[in-house]
Design a binder for these strands. Structure first.
Length: 110
DNA sequence: AGCTTGACTGTGG
DNA sequence: ACCACAGCCAAGC
């Protein structure tokens, strides 16, 4: 059994759809903790396999892959590109790909 | 109990 | 745009 932050974070992470991304800080805010970005990172680090989380869809606030291990980072990039996400250098355009559960509609239609 | 580390972030130079 | 710094907070030792 986990604490409230952890269980909420897991729920929010699983909500991020195919072809979209989210950020550590954004997930933390959805959990009601503006300073919990590192906790989100740690949850992904420890529990992503256990809870079948879409870990590759979570990146940092700059739109970059945040994983230190270069091999894992490359796997993450490939997974994102496979979902249709385009990198500009090492950067993902968050304006375009960030999943905002409170502003789902009007994606690309205006 | 104290110290280090990290898949973080915002700010300021 | 790049880098250094300082908050922050849980995990591991």
């Amino acid at each position: 059994m986990e604490d409230l932050f952890t269980s909420t974070a897991i729920k929010e992470i699983k909500r991020v759809p195919y072809g979209k991304v989210s950020t550590y800080g954004f997930i933390a805010k959805l959990c009601g903790d503006n300073r919990g970005a590192q906790r989100v990172a740690e949850i992904l680090h420890l529990h992503s396999e256990k809870y079948a989380l879409p870990w590759h869809r979570i990146i940092n606030s700059q739109g970059e892959i945040a994983i230190n291990n270069p091999e894992i980072a490359q796997v993450q990039r490939r997974l994102l590109e496979k979902e249709g996400i385009v990198f500009a250098g090492d950067i993902v355009n968050l304006k375009k790909y960030l999943f905002d559960p409170n502003q789902v509609s009007l994606g690309g239609y205006f």
